[in-house]
Each structure stands twice: as structure tokens, then as C-alpha cells.
Design a protein around this nucleic acid. Structure first.
Lengths: 251, 251
DNA sequence: ACCGATCCGTGAACCTGATTCAAGATAGAA
DNA sequence: TTCTATCTTGAATCAGGTTCACGGATCGGT
């Protein structure tokens, strides 16, 4: 009897529907004004039903993040499968991150909120574990690539572990997102395209590690060309303005 | 008549007292359990009085952050006045940050929360402006140092502005704090001393910029010696375990 | 088709905690 | 001392997250 399975499926569909409703409301009114009763209303269910799915509002926010992280992982998987040098792939991880967050500015905001002590501790332990688990592949792919680069002779760890190297790249990435989303910082600093700047910093850091082949940091054209190549070959679907970028790079 | 001034001073003292009470409560029970009524109680004033100072709970959190930022700036000023090479001073900014956050783990947590869309927008515009302003010197000092390094011939900007370079360092720093405070990340990655690791990443990034004199990334002893020197010369008051570190470095 | 048992969905009521504001206290001026 | 302006108070209000007693749907057995 597949009746159990059907119920299960319907339950999951409903959960997805709640999350979609929540995402809509966040887009419309911002995270600040998100209300549980509104989410239920928008999804056309009662509040009580909403609470059959999520132990608390914070729990729902984690669930929202988990869905996004899974999409995020998809992008990283594309990079991992890409036929390119280890250095290019590491750079492509950065580009993936940049495109993802640019596409989903809400995601970063929610994620930032969710990893806050207050919210994190207010969510259920199960959901927290699920989120951490959903995140795992990202770290694993990066570490895997670093190890591959070492094996290929492109990179020397020089006393660090692959994990430790990945922490550096990761920190730069997260920090960039934080700054981009912080009120006015980037404007004050006259940074037009913060994510392009991030790409340069990433290349700088990778050069610092001595990750071969080294790139010429000052070569703007090469940077744009590479970003464009990654965007085109790996993320044509995410990058509506690829053509515009191509024009810019050509100029 | 100095009666106006006296009132003013008493008002400020009371504000400080509220903030101190809030900080105490956060230390005791965590940010999650912070309640306005408790703060008032602890400071021995009525709730209404508390609201004479802060437009909302979020506003109070910003005020808390502002106080800490001012202390933070003090540390950066010490670095700026330090007699050392530009590269050493830039590194010392990193050490200052690391020591500060290590000393005040709460500060980072609150700051992280406060810069969240939800909290940020729930605070008063005045307080937000005040916080941004309090932060300004940090950026200015770093940018100033970068310019000085360029003038001294220690660094070439290679098409970037000083502000843009500072964004890279800043991103790495903020990202590190985020990772350190995120549940389990550093443990999973077998990172014993994440801030020491940060120092290495910082040196790596600075090497990537070609900031002279370049350092040997793999030289752990030199790294420890430099951290120790900065700690001793600039922050003897913040670094109770300097002697322990000295022993380690000597071994 | 009917029946009881079980499970599911509901939303009004509840509860916590932030915020307000009318009333009372206080300090300065005359 | 008395009057007024200002400050302080904390009980009352309000918002919104969370619960749970109720009614209706589903299902297996007859």
C-alpha cells in the first residue's frame, strides 16, 4: 500500500510550499516583517499546520537556508566536475560563490541571521545538524581539490593541512559577502564591483600560497576573461549578463 | 549655571550604567535571553527610564557595539603609532583584531547580530550613523598605512586603490571571525588555534600583494616570534599568556 | 455502506516580552 | 513656600510566536 508514501510526499510538498511562501514574503517585506501567521495564510494553511513542520520560526529560517545550501552545493559540484587546472577550479569555486550570492541576496541575509548565536540556539537541534550536514559537501569539495592540486604538484602545503588552506579561502569569501552586505561600506570605499574585487583578492591569496600556475595580479583583462570563461562554461544559466561582460572584456 | 551640564553628565553616566548592566546579563545568560526589563532591574531604574535612552532593544545593542568599537579603535591607534615597517604594522592590525575578538568573544557575537538586516533596520537611524562613524577610524588607519607603504616603496598597488586593498585584508579578517564563531567548523577542520592560522593567511595574502619585505610562509618559528613581538610591544595588557606563548616559541 | 479508532488540520486563546504613557515625584524658579 | 517644568515610574497595552482542545477526514474491518 503506497498510502504511507503518498502522505509522506504530500507532507514534503506542503513543507516546500511553506518555505516558498516564506521566501515570497521575505522578498516582499523583508526578513524583519516576516510573521508566522502570514506564512500560513500565504500558503493557505492554518498556523497550527505550519507548526507541524517547524518547531519555531527560527527552525523555519534554518530550513530555508538548508534549501538554498543544497542549490549552492549544486554549483560547487559543477565546478568539481569541470575540466580545468586545479588553480582554475579553485578560482571557479570563488566565482560560483559570487554568482550564487549575487543571484540570491536574500540567502546571504538569512544565512547571516541564522548563524547568529540568538537564532542558531533558538532552532531545533535536528535542524541545526541538518544544516551543518547540508553544508559539508562544500568544504569537502574544496578540500578535495586542494589535495588534488598537491598531488598534481600545483601546490605545496608548506606545513598546513588541506583543511587549513581551505579555511583561508573560505574566510576571504565569507568576509567579502559580509562587507558587500554591510551598509555603505563598499560605497564609501569606492568599490564599484565588489565581487570582481573579490576575484582579484582570491587570485592574490592563491598566488600567496604559490598555487601554480601563478597569475599576474595586475592583468585586469586576464581576470575578466577568466571570470567570463567560468561563467560561460559552468554557469550560463546564472549569468544573464554574460554578453554584457563579454563586451566589456573585449573593450 | 552648570546645572545643564551636570544633568547631561548624569544622563551619560546612567546610559553607561545601562550598557554595563546589559553586558553583564549577556555574559551571564547569553544574548538570547537578554530582556529589557532585566536590564532596567539590574541597573536599578524603571523600564521607562531605559527607554529614555534607547529607542528599542536593537538600539541598545547598537549602542553596546559602539562602545566596543571605540575600544577596538584604541588598539588600532597603538598599531598606527608603532615604530615598525609598514608590513609589520599591517600584520599588527591583524594581531590587534585577533586579540580584541579573543578577549571579547561577546563583542563579535553582538556585532554579528547587529549587522544583520533584521536588527540593523530595527535600530534608530541616528544610532546606525553613530556606529558607522565609530567604525570609520579603523578603515582610515588601514588605508593610511597602505598609502604609506606605497610611498615608502614597500607595496605596489598594481591598478587597485588603497581602499580596495584594505577590503581584501578586512574581508579575510571578518570571515575568520565568522568561521571561528560558527558552530563546529574549526573543530571539524582540526584547527587548534584558528587565530594563529589567520595570521598565516594574512601573511600569505600580504605576500600575494607583494608587500615587502616578503616573509617565508612556511617559517612557523618566525610567525610565532612576530606574533609574540607584537603582543609584547603593543598589547602587553591584552595578552596574559604572552609568557606561555614565549615558552612555546622558544621550544 | 457503515462504524469506531486514529490521525490530521484548525484557529482562537494563551503567553512572553517589548513598548508606551498617564500619573506621581522631583528639582528649579520666584 | 508654591508653582511649574521636567523627569521617572511601572502597570497597562500591544504584537506576535506558540499551543492545544476541538471537529472533521481517513482507514481498516465488518
Amino acid at each position: 500500500m503506497g498510502t504511507k508514501e503518498r502522505k509522506q510526499r504530500q507532507f514534503e510538498e506542503r513543507e516546500h510550499r511553506f518555505l516558498a511562501a516564506a521566501r515570497e514574503l521575505i522578498r516582499e517585506d523583508g526578513l524583519l516583517k516576516l510573521q508566522m501567521s502570514r506564512i500560513a495564510e500565504r500558503a493557505e494553511y492554518a498556523v497550527g499546520t505550519l507548526y507541524l513542520h517547524f518547531a519555531s520560526k527560527e527552525d523555519l529560517l534554518l530550513a530555508l537556508t538548508i534549501e538554498q545550501v543544497r542549490e549552492h552545493v549544486e554549483l560547487f559540484l559543477r565546478v568539481a566536475r569541470w575540466e580545468a587546472s586545479s588553480r582554475e577550479r579553485m578560482f571557479a569555486f570563488g566565482v560560483a560563490d559570487m554568482l550564487f550570492v549575487r543571484r540570491n541576496p536574500e540567502h546571504f541575509r538569512i544565512g547571516q541571521y541564522v548563524f547568529t548565536e540568538v537564532v542558531w540556539n533558538a532552532a531545533s537541534a535536528e535542524r541545526r545538524a541538518e544544516l551543518l550536514e547540508a553544508n559539508d559537501p562544500i568544504g569537502a569539495l574544496v578540500v578535495g581539490l586542494i589535495n588534488e592540486a598537491v598531488d598534481a604538484g600545483d601546490l605545496m602545503l608548506r606545513g598546513l593541512t588541506a583543511e587549513q588552506v581551505s579555511v583561508g579561502v573560505w574566510a576571504l569569501t565569507i568576509g567579502t559577502h559580509n562587507l558587500v552586505h554591510a551598509e555603505g561600506v563598499m560605497d564609501d570605499f569606492n568599490v564599484r564591483d565588489p565581487y570582481r574585487l573579490f576575484c582579484r583578492h582570491l587570485q592574490t591569496l592563491l598566488n600567496g600560497y604559490g598555487w601554480n600556475p601563478l597569475v599576474d595580479i595586475a592583468d585586469d583583462g586576464a581576470l575578466d576573461t577568466l571570470i567570463l570563461r567560468v561563467s560561460r562554461e559552468l554557469f550560463p544559466d546564472l549569468c544573464g549578463d554574460c554578453t554584457a561582460q563579454a563586451a566589456k572584456a573585449a573593450a
